[in-house]
Amino acid sequence: MITDWLKKNGYLIEKEDNQLGKKVTLTTEKGQAVGITHSLQTSMSGTAYYRIEYDKAGQEFVLQNLSEILEAQHSE
């Protein structure tokens, strides 16, 4: 629900990654400005994936918008 809200409001974007051969979720400049970043990781089995990371400011941003996120979820 949080990821969906962040996508709808331009903080995250979903796009096709040709190297990984699948859709991935990445941060936008808007997301990075509030403390949300992404990094390419490799799982223990050797699979590459993007991890979304929230620094302290990013976590506070989500908490400050939690009521709006919940309202958006209930209005769908």
Rank of each mutant, 00 (worst) to 15 (best):
H74E: 15
I2D: 01
L40H: 10
L63P: 05
T42F: 06
K7D: 01
V62Q: 03
Y54L: 11
I2Q: 02
D4W: 04
L12V: 01
L40T: 09
K15Q: 12
K7P: 01
Q19K: 15
E14T: 14
A72E: 15
A72Q: 14
T47R: 10
Q59P: 00
I2C: 02
H74W: 13
Q41H: 14
K15N: 06
L63Y: 09
T25E: 05
V34F: 00
A72K: 11
Q73Y: 15
T42K: 13
T37M: 07
L12S: 00
Q64K: 13
E71H: 07
T37V: 08
Y11F: 10
Y50K: 06
Q64P: 02
F61A: 01
K56Y: 05
K56E: 10
Q73I: 13
N18L: 14
K23L: 04
N18W: 10
A57V: 07
A48Y: 12
A57N: 11
E68C: 07
A72W: 14
K23V: 02
S75L: 14
K22I: 07
D4N: 09
K8C: 05
G35C: 01
G58E: 01
V62C: 04
I69R: 01
A57G: 00
L20I: 11
Q19H: 15
F61H: 00
L66V: 09
I13M: 10
S39K: 15
A48I: 06
K8D: 13
D55Y: 02
W5G: 02
S45R: 10
K15C: 09
K8S: 11
E71D: 13
M44L: 12
Q32A: 09
T3P: 04
A72S: 15
S39Y: 13
T28G: 06
H74R: 11
N18D: 13
L70K: 13
T25V: 14
Y54P: 05
D55C: 08
L70S: 11
S45W: 07
E76W: 11
Q32F: 05
Q32I: 08
N65V: 04
